[in-house]
Amino acid sequence: MSETETFETIRYTADVVVTTTDGYVLLIERGWPPFEGAWALPGGHVDPGETSRIAAARELAEEAGVYVMPEELNQVAVFDAPGRDPRGRYVTVAYHLTVIPGTPIQAGDDAINAQWWPLNDLPPLAFDHAAILDAIATKENR
């Protein structure tokens, strides 16, 4: 009897949680499916030759106009639950950055809007981004 291995296509992404020292988080309004029009963390696919940290910095600049050096981003966790994205299997590495209040933002690339939201009054979030925010809150409260 012969066993056959099956392989699943897995896409690699990076997401960034940017918070201010006075309790706000940066969210983008998605301009494309899935979750078109929903609020989400800045992030996206890791390009060939990139690390997830470099991709996170690039996506943050492209989607929200916030420019940082990759080493300024602190890795929080990896999120790889099956079903976290309706397009298929996605594994994301989440990063965190704290900035001062008033840090300018500007929607770009695939985002139709970028906005600072109070952490205690968030809109419904796309994907599992609420879980990513919870992971950061838990890590910071240790």
Rank of each mutant, 00 (worst) to 15 (best):
His45Arg: 14
Val46His: 08
Val46Arg: 15
Asp47Lys: 15
Asp47Thr: 04
Asp47Phe: 01
Pro48Ser: 03
Gly49Asn: 10
Gly49Tyr: 04
Glu50Phe: 03
Thr51Glu: 02
Ser52Trp: 02
Arg53Ser: 05
Arg53Leu: 01
Arg53Trp: 01
Arg53Gln: 15
Ala55Leu: 11
Ala56Ile: 12
Ala57Val: 04
Ala57Lys: 06
Ala57Tyr: 04
Ala57Thr: 03
Arg58Trp: 05
Glu59Ile: 01
Glu59Ser: 05
Leu60Gly: 04
Leu60Thr: 05
Leu60Trp: 11
Ala61His: 09
Ala61Trp: 05
Ala61Ile: 02
Ala64Cys: 04
Ala64Pro: 06
Ala64Ile: 07
Gly65Asn: 08
Gly65Phe: 02
Gly65Gln: 05
Val66His: 04
Val66Ile: 13
Val66Ala: 06
Val68Gly: 08
Met69Tyr: 05
Met69Ser: 14
Met69Leu: 11
Pro70Ala: 05
Pro70Tyr: 02
Glu71Val: 11
Glu71Gln: 15
Glu72Cys: 11
Leu73Asp: 03
Leu73Cys: 13
Leu73Glu: 02
Asn74Gly: 00
Asn74Trp: 13
Gln75His: 09
Gln75Glu: 12
Val78Lys: 08
Phe79Val: 10
Phe79Thr: 07
Phe79Gln: 10
Phe79Glu: 04
Asp80Arg: 15
Asp80Trp: 12
Asp80Ala: 15
Ala81Gln: 14
Pro82Tyr: 10
Pro82Val: 13
Gly83Met: 03
Arg84Lys: 09
Arg84Gly: 06
Asp85Ile: 12
Arg87Met: 07
Gly88Thr: 11
Gly88Val: 11
Arg89Leu: 12
Arg89Trp: 09
Tyr90Leu: 14
Tyr90Asp: 00
Val91Met: 12
Val91Thr: 13
Val91Pro: 00
Val91Lys: 14
Val91Ser: 06
Thr92Met: 06
Thr92Arg: 14
Thr92Val: 05
Val93Met: 08
Tyr95Glu: 01
Tyr95Val: 03
Tyr95Asn: 05
His96Glu: 10
His96Pro: 00
His96Asp: 03
His96Ile: 02
His96Tyr: 08
Leu97Glu: 07
Leu97Gly: 07
Thr98Asp: 06
Thr98Phe: 00
Thr98Lys: 12
Val99Ser: 05
Val99Tyr: 01
Pro101Ser: 07
Gly102His: 12
Gly102Arg: 12
Thr103Gly: 01
Pro104Met: 12
Pro104Lys: 09
Ala107Val: 07
Ala107Arg: 07
Gly108Asp: 03
Gly108Val: 04
Asp109Ile: 00
Asp110Val: 14
Ala111Asn: 13
Ala111Ser: 13
Ile112Met: 14
Ile112Trp: 09
Ile112Val: 14
Asn113Leu: 10
Ala114His: 06
Ala114Gly: 13
Gln115His: 11
Trp116Met: 13
Trp116Tyr: 05
Trp116Pro: 00
Pro118Asp: 00
Pro118Arg: 15
Leu119Lys: 13
Leu119Pro: 01
Leu119Ser: 07
